[in-house]
Nucleic acid binder design. Structure first.
Lengths: 223, 223
DNA sequence: ACCTGAACACCGTTCAAGT
DNA sequence: ACCTGAACACCGTTCAAGT
């Protein structure tokens, strides 16, 4: 055991940097503090390196964010062992939705040039439908309806800046108080409806099943 | 007519700044160059004022962007003269979609704390359904399905960084070339399908009508 | 009331120099 | 091959001073 302040040989002082370490640290940082708080300088400090060290593994900040998006997208669980096309899509999309909630910065960055993980995810959805004999136009329509639902719903949920149930209630009442009764009676009713907890029909899975119902109906009508 | 370089009295040299002028200039700038190119300094230069003049009318950049979002949202046409709830919603949502395409930065900033114009827009949608005897849960579901479709579809369309048809084709072929045939056969097929122009089922209005169909069906089943 | 330049504390990134 | 500090050209915003 070396004494406390032994001089560690320069080369062994710290494990060397690499792309994956940088990307993971960036994701962890953005998960905790938000993507807009992520700077190259703070990230480097966090890793114990000078800023410019990052640029040996990453072209620029944009390249870093692209890599973050693809790494997070890779967390989507693609289970190919399900019995039906419906179950395959359901589990895959629910997993995608959970990834979006885990990485709250992801939905807004979703519309970047697709990396391999996103291609893999999209391929899986399309393959599932085409191999279940969806005609091409229906597969295309289903693809867009389903993928849009995931990111659209995530955006709509995350748009409210709270994390737990009490915060939601507090913010909801605040919103209610801010809304003029004369000008926005139906909006007030809507907020009140959400606060009352009767809106099970409006959660992610319920509306996902509605889309799947529609696809199933169209598919059986065709055969 | 004063000579070319007559000294204009200081007080009349330029029409004074105000919030609306700043917000409009910011919107025009963001429409042209993208929101990420908008800086307080460039905006002020554009208006012919010093940077700090802006802060007499705007709390900070965030306040400015909030104002931009609400001003753009105010461009949504809310027509209350339609004959049916269906036609009212249809025209309103198509108008909202067009606004999103006109201000390409808007969808990503949509999830900000709602201003009066957004409240007005949301109120109109909810009022239309409730006054057509939609029960509260169905109105809530329809509200979220419809509003999500507008911003979700806009995001998905704008995610492709081209503006005209030729660019689309060029970028599509590029995307095709980049996709490994072995790894992504179905994704290649999908891109090819879009390029072939057979995807009329996947435009904004077609899918909007699908949602409206679903709501109409549920409404008539209930009565 | 409205405008302003200087100054501050930050950015991302280039470059030339280190090992 | 990987790391680095100094420097550059930008940010948003505070402040104190002008009219």
């Amino acid at each position: 055991m070396p004494p406390k302040d032994a001089v560690i040989p320069r080369t062994a002082r710290k494990t060397p940097l690499n792309r994956a370490r940088i990307v993971n640290a960036a994701i962890a940082f953005a998960d905790e503090h938000g993507l807009q708080a992520l700077s190259m300088r703070s990230l480097a400090r966090n890793l114990g390196f000078g800023v410019m060290s990052l640029y040996n593994h990453v072209a620029d900040k944009d390249d870093l964010i692209d890599a973050m998006v693809d790494a997070a997208t890779g967390e989507i669980d693609i289970d190919t062992t399900c019995e039906s096309w419906r179950e395959t899509l359901r589990t895959c999309l629910i997993s995608a939705y959970k990834v979006m909630l885990r990485h709250r910065w992801l939905p807004k960055e979703w519309s970047r040039f697709p990396g391999p993980a996103k291609n893999h995810y999209h391929e899986a959805i399309l393959r599932t439908m085409r191999q279940a004999d969806f005609p091409e136009p229906l597969a295309c329509q289903g693809f867009h309806a389903l993928t849009m639902h995931v990111v659209g719903f995530a955006l709509q949920v995350l748009e409210m800046p709270f994390s737990n149930q009490e915060e939601l209630a507090a913010l909801g009442r605040q919103a209610l108080d801010d809304l003029d009764e004369q000008a926005y009676p139906y909006l007030r009713e809507h907020v009140h409806f959400h606060l009352s907890g009767q809106d099970e029909r409006n959660d992610f899975k319920y509306m996902l099943d509605l889309i799947l119902d529609g696809l199933e109906r169209e598919l059986t009508e065709l055969t």
